[in-house]
Computed example of a mutant assay.
Amino acid sequence: MRGQVLGVDTRTGEGLVAGDDGNRYRFTPEDWAQRGEPAIGIKVDFEASGERALSVFPMPDTAGHRPVVAPPPHVPANDRSKIVAALLAFFLGTLGIHRFYLGRTGSGIAMLVLSITVIGLLVTGPWALIDMVRYLVMSDEEFALRYRRKG
């Protein structure tokens, strides 16, 4: 069946197609059978199954619309800053404070206990320095995925 995309939720990727039969059909990102994202107003070809549009393909460009729009880069939301984590690792790293900040309580306790002795400081000092460098060179996406708050 053929139709036209009426709307797309940019957060979820779910959309609505007006079929040539006068009915409306919902689709999910998994139903979109092309690279990129659907755009409002483009003509599509799809299989109708109840109120769902399956295997949605953009039709060749006939009305000046771009059939496929590249998706924007997705950066997961994060309530922690890699700059703050790096600064904590630099200034208070031997005590493991940066680990507590990032929710890594177990290794934070280990660093805190190790820092009681001089030998432990020789271990936690380089450990904190390596952590600081890792945070700074890590991409924002990787940092957000690795250190986001659970639950």
Rank of each mutant, 00 (worst) to 15 (best):
K82A: 04
L136C: 11
R35C: 01
V8M: 05
R146T: 06
A85F: 10
L122P: 04
Y135G: 01
G151C: 02
Q4R: 15
P73C: 00
G103R: 07
A39D: 09
A18H: 03
G3N: 01
A110C: 09
F46S: 02
F57W: 14
F91I: 13
A18W: 03
P72M: 07
K43R: 15
D21G: 13
W127E: 04
A128M: 08
R35E: 11
P72V: 08
V123N: 06
G93E: 03
T105I: 12
G93N: 05
I130A: 07
A144T: 06
R148Q: 15
R148V: 08
E141V: 12
G103C: 08
G125A: 15
A144D: 07
P38Y: 11
L6V: 05
A144P: 02
H65L: 13
S107P: 05
G41P: 00
I130K: 05
D20E: 10
I83M: 06
R146H: 00
V68I: 11
D61H: 10
I42V: 15
K82N: 06
L102E: 06
R134C: 11
T117W: 09
L6I: 05
V113I: 15
K82S: 05
Y147E: 02
A53W: 06
T105L: 10
R146K: 11
P73D: 04
H65N: 15
G41F: 04
L112D: 02
G64E: 07
Y135C: 02
F143A: 03
R148K: 14
R2T: 12
G15S: 07
K43G: 09
D21S: 13
V113N: 02
M1T: 12
L16C: 01
V8S: 03
L95S: 02
F57I: 07
A53E: 05
V56L: 13
H65Q: 15
W127F: 13
M138F: 03
D21F: 13
S115L: 09
G103K: 06
P60R: 14
E30S: 13
T10D: 14
N78C: 15
P72E: 11
T12I: 05
G64Q: 06
G50N: 12
G36E: 01
G96F: 00
V68Y: 06
G108L: 10
G120V: 07
I119Y: 13
F91G: 03
V113K: 02
L136T: 08
T10M: 14
R2P: 05
T10C: 10
G15R: 03
P126T: 02
L102I: 05
L114V: 12
E141T: 09
T62H: 11
F27W: 08
S49E: 14
G3D: 01
E47C: 00
T28M: 09
R149F: 11
M1L: 12
G22I: 04
E47A: 02
L122C: 14
R11F: 12
A85T: 05
A144Q: 08
N23R: 12
T94N: 11
P58F: 03
V69S: 08
G7S: 15
L145H: 12
P29N: 05
P71L: 08
P29K: 10
K43S: 12
P60G: 05
